[in-house]
């Protein structure tokens, strides 16, 4: 586990990530309440047993988060998902992956 600041997310991941060695599992979000959102970028290592590398940070819902799709193309799904389900803003990522006009807005957010 490694805590990072949201401003230098891109640098941290660029310096860490090597497509042949690391596997990006997903971007996980967890609403802790009181406008605090815990984000975890979870990586594993190929050919190593149960070895996780997790970057985490806590941010608020008002911030516009940077996107890592330039480094990891498959992250677009994870990011679009949390945009939809938590109502956070990520640069250049649109919502509407899962939810329509008739669905509730950001359903996984704590109702405080």
């Amino acid at each position: 586990m490694q805590e990072i600041k949201i401003e230098n997310l891109i640098e941290e991941i660029t310096s860490f990530y090597d497509p042949k060695l690391h596997h990006f599992v997903c971007l996980n979000a967890n609403d802790l309440g009181e406008n605090r959102l815990k984000l975890q970028w979870i990586f594993t290592f190929y050919n190593q047993e149960d070895n996780y590398q997790i970057f985490w940070t806590i941010c608020s819902f008002d911030e516009v988060l940077p996107t890592i799709t330039k480094i990891i193309p498959s992250a677009i799904m994870s990011e679009a998902e949390i945009v939809d389900l938590f109502g956070v803003q990520i640069k250049d990522i649109q919502g509407g992956l899962y939810l329509d006009e008739t669905s509730p807005i950001s359903p996984l957010r704590c109702s405080i």
Binding site: F24, V25, C26, N28, P73, S74, M77
Partner: peptide, 25 residues
């Protein structure tokens, strides 16, 4: 990903499935 806080209810369940991350590919 599971997060439990000592009650009967879990705090967060995150499911990542194979097709989910493969769609850009």
């Amino acid at each position: 990903y599971l997060n439990a806080n000592g009650t009967n209810m879990l705090q967060r369940v995150r499911i990542k499935t194979p097709t989910f991350s493969q769609i850009p590919g």
